[in-house]
Protein backbone atom coordinates (compact mmCIF):
# COMPACT_ATOMS: atom_id res chain seq x y z
CA UNK A 1 0.00 0.00 0.00
CA UNK A 2 1.22 3.49 -0.79
CA UNK A 3 2.12 5.58 2.22
CA UNK A 4 -0.46 8.29 1.43
CA UNK A 5 -3.29 5.73 1.12
CA UNK A 6 -2.16 4.06 4.35
CA UNK A 7 -2.21 7.45 6.07
CA UNK A 8 -5.81 8.08 4.93
CA UNK A 9 -6.89 4.60 6.02
CA UNK A 10 -5.15 4.98 9.37
CA UNK A 11 -6.72 8.34 9.97
CA UNK A 12 -10.28 7.05 9.33
CA UNK A 13 -9.71 3.80 11.22
CA UNK A 14 -8.72 5.78 14.31
CA UNK A 15 -12.18 7.44 14.51
CA UNK A 16 -14.54 6.29 17.26
CA UNK A 17 -17.29 5.64 14.75
CA UNK A 18 -15.11 3.48 12.42
CA UNK A 19 -15.94 0.18 14.14
CA UNK A 20 -19.75 0.67 14.34
CA UNK A 21 -19.77 1.86 10.72
CA UNK A 22 -17.89 -1.21 9.54
CA UNK A 23 -20.26 -3.32 11.67
CA UNK A 24 -23.17 -1.90 9.69
CA UNK A 25 -21.38 -2.50 6.39
CA UNK A 26 -20.71 -6.13 7.33
CA UNK A 27 -24.29 -6.77 8.43
CA UNK A 28 -26.13 -4.90 5.67
CA UNK A 29 -25.86 -6.01 2.06
CA UNK A 30 -25.79 -2.30 1.12
CA UNK A 31 -26.34 0.91 3.03
CA UNK A 32 -26.72 4.59 2.19
CA UNK A 33 -24.97 7.44 4.05
CA UNK A 34 -28.24 8.78 5.49
CA UNK A 35 -29.30 5.32 6.75
CA UNK A 36 -25.95 4.78 8.45
CA UNK A 37 -25.92 8.31 9.89
CA UNK A 38 -29.41 7.99 11.39
CA UNK A 39 -28.62 4.50 12.70
CA UNK A 40 -25.44 5.71 14.51
CA UNK A 41 -26.71 9.19 15.35
CA UNK A 42 -23.92 10.88 13.40
CA UNK A 43 -23.93 13.82 11.02
CA UNK A 44 -24.55 12.68 7.46
CA UNK A 45 -21.51 14.58 6.19
CA UNK A 46 -19.22 12.68 8.61
CA UNK A 47 -20.53 9.33 7.41
CA UNK A 48 -20.44 10.36 3.77
CA UNK A 49 -16.77 11.39 4.00
CA UNK A 50 -15.92 8.07 5.66
CA UNK A 51 -17.75 6.01 3.04
CA UNK A 52 -16.26 8.00 0.15
CA UNK A 53 -12.75 7.58 1.54
CA UNK A 54 -13.24 3.81 1.90
CA UNK A 55 -14.57 3.71 -1.67
CA UNK A 56 -11.44 5.52 -2.88
CA UNK A 57 -9.37 2.86 -1.12
CA UNK A 58 -11.39 0.11 -2.87
CA UNK A 59 -12.72 -1.24 0.41
CA UNK A 60 -16.29 -0.33 -0.53
CA UNK A 61 -18.16 -0.21 -3.79
CA UNK A 62 -20.57 2.60 -4.58
CA UNK A 63 -23.84 1.98 -6.45
CA UNK A 64 -26.00 4.79 -7.72
CA UNK A 65 -29.73 4.14 -7.21
CA UNK A 66 -32.84 6.26 -7.76
CA UNK A 67 -35.72 7.03 -5.50
CA UNK A 68 -38.49 9.02 -7.17
CA UNK A 69 -36.02 10.03 -9.91
CA UNK A 70 -33.62 11.37 -7.25
CA UNK A 71 -30.23 9.62 -7.36
CA UNK A 72 -28.32 8.60 -4.23
CA UNK A 73 -25.46 6.20 -3.42
CA UNK A 74 -25.54 2.90 -1.65
CA UNK A 75 -22.33 1.37 -0.38
CA UNK A 76 -21.39 -2.32 -0.42
CA UNK A 77 -18.45 -3.83 1.45
CA UNK A 78 -15.93 -5.30 -0.99
CA UNK A 79 -13.16 -6.44 1.32
CA UNK A 80 -13.79 -8.34 4.53
CA UNK A 81 -10.10 -8.39 5.37
CA UNK A 82 -8.08 -5.19 5.34
CA UNK A 83 -4.30 -5.49 5.33
CA UNK A 84 -2.10 -2.47 5.79
CA UNK A 85 1.40 -3.21 4.47
CA UNK A 86 3.84 -0.36 3.87
CA UNK A 87 7.28 -0.79 2.37
CA UNK A 88 9.34 1.89 4.15
CA UNK A 89 12.32 1.28 1.88
CA UNK A 90 10.40 3.14 -0.79
CA UNK A 91 10.80 6.28 1.33
CA UNK A 92 14.53 6.28 0.73
CA UNK A 93 15.33 9.42 -1.24
CA UNK A 94 16.26 8.74 -4.81
CA UNK A 95 15.54 12.04 -6.42
CA UNK A 96 18.62 13.95 -5.36
CA UNK A 97 22.09 14.24 -6.82
CA UNK A 98 23.45 13.90 -3.27
CA UNK A 99 22.64 10.21 -3.47
CA UNK A 100 25.48 10.05 -5.89
CA UNK A 101 28.01 9.74 -3.07
CA UNK A 102 30.90 10.71 -5.31
CA UNK A 103 29.62 14.28 -5.41
CA UNK A 104 32.14 16.65 -3.81
CA UNK A 105 31.11 19.03 -1.06
CA UNK A 106 32.44 21.52 1.49
CA UNK A 107 31.07 24.17 3.87
CA UNK A 108 29.97 27.32 2.05
CA UNK A 109 31.72 30.53 3.07
CA UNK A 110 29.77 32.93 5.27
CA UNK A 111 27.04 30.34 5.68
CA UNK A 112 26.24 31.76 9.11
CA UNK A 113 25.68 28.28 10.52
CA UNK A 114 26.63 27.76 14.15
CA UNK A 115 27.82 24.28 15.02
CA UNK A 116 27.61 23.16 18.64
CA UNK A 117 30.12 20.60 19.75
CA UNK A 118 28.92 17.59 21.73
CA UNK A 119 30.16 17.01 25.26
CA UNK A 120 33.01 14.74 24.22
CA UNK A 121 34.11 17.38 21.70
CA UNK A 122 34.55 15.06 18.75
CA UNK A 123 31.30 15.58 16.89
CA UNK A 124 28.55 18.19 16.60
CA UNK A 125 25.31 17.79 18.51
CA UNK A 126 23.36 20.42 16.59
CA UNK A 127 23.62 23.08 13.94
CA UNK A 128 21.81 26.41 14.10
CA UNK A 129 20.91 28.10 10.82
CA UNK A 130 19.57 31.60 10.36
CA UNK A 131 16.53 31.39 8.08
CA UNK A 132 15.07 34.52 6.45
CA UNK A 133 16.38 38.05 6.31
CA UNK A 134 16.28 41.05 8.62
CA UNK A 135 13.54 41.13 11.23
CA UNK A 136 11.77 38.25 9.55
CA UNK A 137 14.77 36.01 10.14
CA UNK A 138 14.67 33.31 12.76
CA UNK A 139 16.98 30.64 13.99
CA UNK A 140 16.36 27.02 13.07
CA UNK A 141 18.21 24.52 15.21
CA UNK A 142 18.69 21.02 13.81
CA UNK A 143 19.61 18.25 16.24
CA UNK A 144 22.04 15.81 14.70
CA UNK A 145 22.50 12.10 15.19
CA UNK A 146 25.98 11.17 16.38
CA UNK A 147 26.79 9.88 12.88
CA UNK A 148 25.65 13.11 11.22
CA UNK A 149 27.57 15.10 13.86
CA UNK A 150 30.76 13.15 13.14
CA UNK A 151 30.27 13.64 9.40
CA UNK A 152 29.87 17.40 9.72
CA UNK A 153 32.83 17.55 12.12
CA UNK A 154 34.93 16.32 9.19
CA UNK A 155 33.27 18.46 6.52
CA UNK A 156 35.91 20.49 4.60
CA UNK A 157 36.16 24.15 5.56
CA UNK A 158 35.03 26.99 3.25
CA UNK A 159 37.41 27.56 0.31
CA UNK A 160 39.36 24.40 1.12
CA UNK A 161 39.54 21.40 -1.21
CA UNK A 162 36.19 19.69 -1.89
CA UNK A 163 35.82 16.09 -0.69
CA UNK A 164 33.32 13.50 -1.81
CA UNK A 165 30.81 12.13 0.66
CA UNK A 166 32.43 8.69 0.75
CA UNK A 167 35.83 10.23 1.56
CA UNK A 168 34.37 12.29 4.40
CA UNK A 169 32.55 9.23 5.74
CA UNK A 170 35.80 7.27 5.70
CA UNK A 171 37.63 10.09 7.46
CA UNK A 172 34.89 10.20 10.10
CA UNK A 173 34.86 6.37 10.43
CA UNK A 174 31.20 6.11 9.39
CA UNK A 175 29.85 2.82 7.97
CA UNK A 176 28.02 2.86 4.65
CA UNK A 177 24.85 1.65 6.41
CA UNK A 178 24.44 5.25 7.63
CA UNK A 179 24.70 6.74 4.14
CA UNK A 180 21.00 7.61 3.84
CA UNK A 181 20.97 9.70 7.02
CA UNK A 182 24.13 11.42 5.79
CA UNK A 183 22.55 12.22 2.44
CA UNK A 184 19.47 13.53 4.27
CA UNK A 185 21.47 16.04 6.33
CA UNK A 186 23.63 17.02 3.34
CA UNK A 187 20.48 17.68 1.29
CA UNK A 188 19.01 19.80 4.07
CA UNK A 189 22.19 21.81 4.61
CA UNK A 190 22.57 22.30 0.86
CA UNK A 191 19.02 23.64 0.78
CA UNK A 192 19.89 26.12 3.55
CA UNK A 193 23.12 27.19 1.86
CA UNK A 194 25.43 25.74 4.50
CA UNK A 195 26.99 23.17 2.18
CA UNK A 196 28.08 23.73 -1.42
CA UNK A 197 28.88 21.19 -4.11
CA UNK A 198 31.66 21.31 -6.67
CA UNK A 199 30.47 22.72 -9.98
Amino acid sequence: MEFKKAAILGSYMSKDYAEPLFKLLVNYSSISASEAASRLNLHIRTVQDFLEAMTELNILKKEEVYEKKRPYNRYVLLKHLIKMEINLDKLQENDSDINNYSIKIRERNNSGAQFTTARNGQYFSNVAIWVGKGREGKERKISLTETQGRFLFNLPFPNSAFMDIIQIMKKAHIDTEHSSEISDIVNLLKEYGVVETEK
Binding site: E107, N109, N110, T117, F124, F153, N154, P158, K171
Partner: peptide
Protein backbone atom coordinates in the same frame (compact mmCIF):
# COMPACT_ATOMS: atom_id res chain seq x y z
CA UNK B 1 45.94 33.75 1.53
CA UNK B 2 42.30 32.91 0.93
CA UNK B 3 39.33 35.24 1.24
CA UNK B 4 36.26 34.36 3.33
CA UNK B 5 37.58 31.01 4.46
CA UNK B 6 36.88 31.43 8.19
CA UNK B 7 34.46 29.15 10.01
CA UNK B 8 33.85 28.84 13.73
CA UNK B 9 34.04 25.03 13.57
CA UNK B 10 36.90 23.10 15.14
CA UNK B 11 38.97 21.01 12.73
CA UNK B 12 40.19 17.44 13.29
Amino acid sequence: ESKESYTSRPRP
